[in-house]
Design a protein around this nucleic acid. Structure first.
Lengths: 140, 140
DNA sequence: TCCTACGATGGACACAATCCAAGTCAATAC
DNA sequence: GTATTGACTTGGATTGTGTCCATCGTAGGA
């Protein structure tokens, strides 16, 4: 993830301890953290970091395309640092657990002209909803 | 939409003025309302209706499969009454406008076993993100 | 018409996210 | 190394969305 720090510096980011910590927290695969969880983990590394700074930094990372926001139903937004590898999401409708999935080549085709309503489409997002093994075991 | 009222009554719903009004507000195609907007419009028809009742009724409609919740990024959940016709969504990343789209037959295939991680998948959701004509006209 | 269980009410509460004014500090210039 | 400055950070207040709960009202059956 230190290549991320390099890329950020190259884009003129002022490097601060807070931003470094937020980037550090978001390292890895299959990471999907709510802003609150990022704050919690960042606080463990840098106790004085403020919530506003975490939100600001996450927003900037999203604007730079380094991190993707994952929309959820009725929960806090999740931040997915795996933005450079296209993938879909598999979400448990009970507990909210998210897994990245990489279906082989069945990305939906672009929209036909007749269905675009004048939009310029620049991203497609596929979410599979279901129940994870744990939740099925708990409640049938 | 009065067939909706029929279906609800058939399922043992106690029919009240409040529930009727909420169902009425959700009539039509290409309707995607936040709970707050439902409350606003319902209040116009029945001024004393309470927020809790609107939320309760929406939740019940979702549980019955008559209405679908649409996840958004950074906004309130939207309620989509068009639940009986499978469709995808085209979302403007600037203003949040949503259109229903019906791509011809390019639904993503189910997940291969190896990518299910023990989940039981029961729904696939496809969201196209882009910018609508209005927003492009405004800011290039 | 009366009963009663289900539904509605609204104020308090919880959580997510943003705003703001004031203080701090990374990067640049000297 | 020091001074400078504007971008960054802070934390408390605020907004927005949604839920909880005790109490009241009423739809629909007897």
């Amino acid at each position: 993830m230190s290549d991320l720090l390099e890329r950020l510096r190259a884009r003129g980011w002022r490097m601060t301890a807070q931003r470094r910590v937020v980037a550090e927290v978001l390292a890895g695969e299959h990471v999907h953290l709510a802003a609150d969880e990022v704050l919690e983990r960042a606080s463990a590394l840098l106790p004085e970091i403020s919530r506003t700074t975490v939100y600001n930094t996450l927003g900037e990372l999203v604007a730079l395309g380094e991190v993707t926001e994952v929309s959820t139903i009725g929960r806090a937004k999740l931040y997915d640092p795996n933005a450079h590898r296209p993938h879909h999401h598999l979400v448990c409708t009970d507990c909210g657990t998210i897994r990245d999935v990489h279906p082989d080549g069945d990305l939906p085709a672009g929209l036909p002209e007749s269905e675009r309503f004048g939009f310029t489409v620049h991203a497609v997002e596929v979410t599979f909803r279901g129940r994870c093994a744990d939740c099925r075991a708990l409640s049938g």
